[in-house]
């Protein structure tokens, strides 16, 4: 599904909702359209375990029934995992609520930068002119930096930005700990010595501050003079969060805390903002 663009994913859900017979609300006017919005458009090429969208219903339906109905008419590769009622004030606002996102970045088999490959050390450590980089320690020392200035391109200009405050968490993920689904299907591939492991990222996301995982990875490798080839990263979005620091009513077990510009902030997965409809 990673080849389907955001607008087409929306079209997919518009048609799926009709097939499932879910009584969705429409806008008024001459050309009515479904009241539906996505929290955060996913780029082509990325996979995700955590896409969220808001819809408004005319007739209530239980979470179980809605999930079953949508998955019954769905395709392989897109599944509905949750359906929650969102309290007043947070309804139809997913897009403005998004504050952070989790990602796992792996290296696509065959595209691992050479100096990161574990096999290099054993094979020709001595012959290798440049030193091998250990991804785990590279991530550790990268995170230890106070500032990480990078050149960020916008439509109009290119400017230097410190991305460090937008990285809430970053850690090395050993080969076997990576996303379970991936590990099963690609079990063979995982074992190959070329695989340097993966990186977990919790980054600022949304309209206030937004950091792309590719940019962090480029900066990480760039600090060792390594340039990743196109298609080198395989990125999976794992979760989207709202910032619930000031919202005392919103305390769930799923919330996490992060440090942002010296302050503690509480992030809550978007799904945990709503409640199951029985």
């Amino acid at each position: 599904m990673k080849f389907i663009g955001h607008l087409d994913v929306m079209r997919y859900f518009q048609k799926a909702i009709r097939r499932a017979g879910i009584d969705i609300a429409y806008t008024e006017g001459l050309s009515p359209h479904m009241i539906m919005s996505f929290a955060s458009p996913l780029g082509v090429g990325l996979t995700s375990d955590a896409e969220y969208m808001d819809i408004e219903l005319r007739t209530p339906i239980s979470s179980r029934a809605a999930i079953d109905a949508l998955n019954r008419v769905g395709v392989e590769g897109i599944s509905v995992t949750g359906f929650y009622e969102v309290p007043e004030g947070k309804a139809n606002k997913a897009m403005t609520l998004v504050a952070a996102a989790d990602y796992i970045v792996r290296f696509r088999a065959g595209y691992e930068p050479e100096r990161l490959q574990r096999s290099v050390q054993e094979k020709e450590a001595a012959a290798c002119a440049e030193e091998r980089i250990d991804l785990a320690s590279a991530v550790e020392s990268f995170c230890a930096r106070r500032e990480i200035p990078v050149w960020k391109k916008t439509k109009k200009s290119e400017r230097e930005v410190d991305i460090r405050p937008m990285i809430y968490e970053m850690r090395y993920v050993p080969v076997m700990e990576q996303s379970k689904a991936k590990a099963e299907s690609d079990a063979e591939e995982e074992k190959t010595a070329a695989n340097p492991g993966a990186v977990f990222l919790r980054l600022a996301s949304g309209s206030a501050a937004n950091l792309k995982p590719e940019l962090v990875m480029d900066a990480l490798l760039g600090s060792y003079g390594v340039e990743a080839s196109p298609f080198a990263y395989e990125i999976n979005r794992c979760e989207l969060y709202a910032d619930t620091t000031s919202d005392t009513a919103q305390k769930t077990d799923e919330s996490v805390t992060v440090m942002c510009a010296g302050e503690t902030r509480r992030l809550t997965p978007l799904g945990a903002l709503g409640r199951e409809i029985l």
Binding site: V44, V75, R108, P230, F231, E234
Partner: peptide
Amino acid sequence: DEILLSIEKPARYIGG
């Protein structure tokens, strides 16, 4: 993936 991500409208070729 590399080919699909470097051409126009990759969804033309994936079926499903």
